[in-house]
Amino acid sequence: MSDDHSHPDLKHHVPLSERAKRAIAIHRLLVAKGIIGPAEVESVIDQVRTRSPADGAKVVARAWTDPAYKGRLLSDSRSAVLELGYRLSRDADLAVVENTAGVHHLVVCTLCSCYPTALLGPPPDWYKSFAYRQRAVVEPRAVLREFGTELDECARVRVVDSTADLRYLVLPRRPGGTDGMSEVELAGLVTRDSMVGVGEAKTP
């Protein structure tokens, strides 16, 4: 990607929009002028590819199995995540909110697309869509139903509109019937959607 000459396949893709062409042009100019290195973008692309919801799932599984860790995760999320070897962006801090029988959190960013990328990878398209950004704050239960999530009668919904330097990760409820399971097995039950709050963790 650092050198777009190396992408003969590009012509077989959908025709590039004007903005796409201009982005490629900007990159070529920045490299040609020595403002950025020829391989820099490629190395970031590789870093981005290494992040996925599997990282967040490990954090959740640890919190499910270690109450002291869970306490630290909720009260000082950054340190607790660093403890497991994950790196957070210097620009954004992290907060973790816990779903319980009584309260269900659902995260949205109405202004743009703030998302805990460090632990979940890039946000899915729907998270960035106008429909989700518009509706999640004003009809969260309807949105949850579209995702197939029906809440208990007694649960209240607390929408989190992520606007600023904090990125929010939902700690989903640990499903029943998982008593003897290992941390690795538990992590397999933790979906991306459950950590955004549009879903719940899978049951075994």
Partner: peptide, 27 residues
């Protein structure tokens, strides 16, 4: 940065048709 919690009915009035106990938190 203050995480402020609002009652949904305080934000949307009758436009909020779900549960009166629901809230919204934003920074």
């Amino acid at each position: 940065l203050c995480a402020v919690e609002f009652r949904q009915v305080d934000l949307w009035g009758e436009g909020y048709r779900e549960n009166n106990r629901d809230s919204l938190l934003t920074d």
